[in-house]
Design a protein around this nucleic acid. Sequence first.
DNA 1: AACTGTACCAACCGCAGTCGT
DNA 2: AACGACTGCGGTTGGTACAGT
Length: 254
Amino acid sequence: MGRQCSSSVKQQKLRKGLWSPEEDEKLFDHISKFGVGCWSSVPKLAGLQRCGKSCRLRWINYLRPDLKRGMFSQEEEDLILNLHEALGNRWAQIASQLPGRTDNEIKNFWNSSLKKKLQKQGIDPNTHKPVEIQVKMEQDYSEKQAYDPIFMSEFQESIDFNTPSSYRPYDPGCGFNSMPNLTNFDHHTNYSDSSGAYLMKESSSNSSNPRMDSKTDMTNAFSLESIFEFQFDGADERSYALASLSQELSEAFQ
DNA sequence: AACTGTACCAACCGCAGTCGT
DNA sequence: AACGACTGCGGTTGGTACAGT
């Protein structure tokens, strides 16, 4: 479906797979001389049998002079964990906070290393919550759902699964309620002041459109400052809220 | 030495958003 | 408004290296 390496390069035999040193050199020379412009014209101008998309990727992930190569430091690892908890699989957003690292690199590091590390520690890598609490919450929730149709209808009303955002606010103190979509939140919303309100993050696997538009929603409306304000100031309250929710649901069911 | 399983990573693919016409 | 070209993003795949048997 996608317009894979389409357009200007008309059915020319395009190379795929690993880049040779010669190709790298050609691309590097071209970008060094003319800078990053229109990627679709780069292959022709640089004398490469590649599509523009491939050139772009090669430049961004490998040739860019400002890339930091090598192992991730403990600080970087911690930052990735924190950012992933706040942002989910928005690798480009995460990468923008780690100078010299690419989204692809971070994604690979996450999938090959960090994810497993968390799992070993009994933490769900999607939610960053301990697995026991997660399981308990799911059990409680499905039991409550099965036995209490009013609870279910209130819950469904409170959450519009068609909204583009994969983050939905939840206030455990008042039950499920309708809070404004995050994209409408004030730039400086302080989550630690909102009665323990925290974000309930949908797992990307059951979202019909896991890609919230990061450019419009996250960048513009949900600044990094507010994320970190939430991340650090609200962390304890969120854990507390999680435990409260679990307890609340258990009690409600009993 | 040969085979198999696993981890890692570069690159590809498909989709969605943006921009120009 | 509609369309096509282009760009950027996240998920996935395929190749390679390495460890274990």
